[in-house]
């Protein structure tokens, strides 16, 4: 494992911790898209089908369990926790996420490395992860006062994707036969979706102003 991959995983882990911190201690999920969180839960469920059959390392298994557990518990908090769910901006979070799931599934059935159930589900999870942030970005645009934790959560998620790209570049030059077009293209698409957000995030940081995305 190289430094970019480790940094990427840690950034991903921090993003989840920031979100759980907000939900668990402040008992608020204001500005957080349940649609995006449900998509992430689906992404991890589809991708980690091999969790008990394909052992890679203890690190890998533990991280998979953390991402599965955290994504499903965030969804549970936002849907069912009697205090947290009151702060959910239901009327603003209107992105129809079902419209993302079906095209991703069709694309995974058409474009994959191997036509097996696990491989198609794995590919589906990559395509879905690439677009899963969209409901969250739409909600951020509609939110007048984006609080710091929500802004940091999205920033950390974007940073995780950027670090994964550096990891792929590194692996491409250091490992023989390391070519994963599906992973790379969907990962690149995913990272590009954050470009706009990054621009405004750094502007607000530079000018010491509250983060605000123009509609």
């Amino acid at each position: 494992m190289n430094i970019f991959r480790l940094a990427g995983d840690m950034t991903h882990l921090f993003s989840v911790l920031v979100l759980l911190l907000k939900i668990h201690t402040i008992k608020s999920c204001a500005g957080v898209s349940l649609k995006t969180q449900e998509l992430y839960a689906l992404v991890f469920a589809a991708r980690y089908l091999d969790i008990f059959t394909n052992y890679i390392s203890l690190y890998n298994t533990v991280m998979k369990l953390i991402f599965l557990g955290s994504s499903f518990s965030i969804v549970w908090y936002m849907r069912y926790h009697k205090i947290v769910r009151r702060s959910y901006d239901k009327d603003q979070d209107t992105f129809r996420h079902y419209f993302l799931i079906l095209p991703c599934l069709l694309l995974a059935l058409l474009i994959n490395e191997k036509f097996t159930f696990k491989e198609v589900m794995w590919t589906f999870s990559l395509y879905l992860e690439a677009v899963a942030i969209l409901p969250q970005l739409v909600l951020l645009q509609r939110t007048r006062n984006i609080d710091n934790l929500t802004g940091q959560y999205v920033f950390l998620l974007g940073a995780y994707r950027a670090l994964y790209i550096l990891n792929w570049v590194y692996r491409y030059f250091t490992e023989p036969h390391f070519v994963h077009w599906i992973t790379w293209v969907s990962g690149l698409v995913q990272t590009l979706l954050y470009a706009d957000f990054f621009y405004y995030y750094f502007q607000s940081w530079k000018n010491n102003q509250k983060l605000h995305l123009p509609a």
């Binding site: 991959r5 995983d9 991903h12 991708r47 091999d50 394909n54 890679i56 890998n60 991280m63 998979k64 991402f67 490395e113 191997k114 491989e119 794995w122 994964y164 990891n167 036969h177 390391f178 992973t183």
Partner: peptide
């Protein structure tokens, strides 16, 4: 192992 389908990333 099969290089194409080995998924060692998260």
């Amino acid at each position: 192992a099969d290089i194409i389908t080995e998924h060692d990333e998260l």
